[in-house]
């Protein structure tokens, strides 16, 4: 091994060791034990059970659909709002207040979901009477309500991405357009938006990964059997139940591993598919 390689490994080993041992290995190990029952290799039996057992398979499907709903609502609300705020912050019309606005708008993202869940549950609870309707108690409104709480909390993150992306646009491009008499709106939609399209794409895919991997806000509000009547159950809470158990239900680590593997596949396929198709085109159109 050359001296350069030896030095490279010397410096990178601590980080690699942590990453491989506590992130990569557990994921690979999870896939591995999803093919086992106790110590016996059973092939796809755990997966077959997951997809054919009457209760479990219907729970899985409904959790998956809830994740889709969560993702779509979150992306559809979060992105335009974050874009609007970032556009206003970089419009040159708020000047000295920019830092103040940006800081305050990010504060909800620094809270834990436990606090966010509690704050909103109290605010919309019939106890306080600000909202009359039991938003969290009805099957139709429970999941959208929780999604909006999550949007409220994490809006600061896409805002910061888009804000930095908009700031990075060279000012001479904008000046040239302005000299040509283009309006603020035209400049934003025709020049700025296409230039930050890759960042918009990255935010969308991160939102996808985070929502399909998400668990916290649902668990914080509704525990491991997210009601009413599982209407807010997502893949994360289903995974928690299958491997850790909840109430009278015993956990099963092999079945849990199989559930995690399927979720991992969903995220992997979604992400890979996205990068192979859309993101590549965004980069090309930028050039």
């Amino acid at each position: 091994m050359s001296k350069r390689h030896r030095k490279l490994l010397l410096f990178t080993t601590p980080a690699l060791a942590f990453f491989l041992a506590f992130a990569v290995f557990p994921l690979i190990g999870t896939i591995y034990i999803s093919f086992y029952r106790e110590t016996k290799f059973v092939g796809l039996a755990n997966f077959k059970f997951l997809f054919t057992d009457e209760t479990l398979s219907s729970r899985f499907l409904s959790a998956f659909l809830h994740n889709c709903e969560f993702f779509i609502i979150a992306a559809a609300v979060q992105l335009p709002l974050a874009l609007l705020m970032a556009a206003l912050l970089t419009s040159g019309r708020v000047r000295r207040m920019t830092g103040f606005y940006r800081t305050i708008l990010f504060i909800p993202s620094t809270l834990s979901v436990v606090i966010v869940g509690f704050i909103w549950r109290l605010i919309i609870s019939p106890l306080w009477g600000i909202v009359d309707y039991p938003l969290l108690g009805e099957k139709a409104t429970a999941l959208p309500t929780i999604t909006l709480m999550s949007v409220w909390q994490y809006l600061g993150i896409p805002l910061v991405f888009l804000y930095s992306a908009l700031l990075a646009i060279p000012s001479n491009i904008i000046e040239a357009a302005r000299v040509d008499g283009a309006s603020d709106f035209r400049i934003f939609f025709r020049i700025k938006m296409p230039l930050i399209a890759p960042q918009i794409g990255i935010i969308t895919i991160l939102t996808f990964i985070w929502t399909f991997n998400g668990f916290d806000i649902i668990f914080a509000l509704n525990g491991g059997m997210p009601g009413p009547d599982f209407s807010t159950d997502v893949l994360g809470t289903l995974f928690y139940r299958t491997f850790f158990g909840w109430g009278a239900d015993q956990g099963d680590q092999n079945l849990g591993a199989a559930t995690a593997t399927v979720i991992f596949l969903i995220i992997l396929l979604g992400t890979a598919g996205y990068f192979a198709t859309i993101q590549r085109r965004l980069k090309v159109s930028q050039l």
Partner: peptide, 25 residues
Amino acid sequence: TKLATVIAGLFTIGIMLPVTLGTVV
């Protein structure tokens, strides 16, 4: 070196890795 690029690539993918799914292990 080439290896450095590989290691950097590994960490780049690592940013997006949903590690909670490895919780069983």
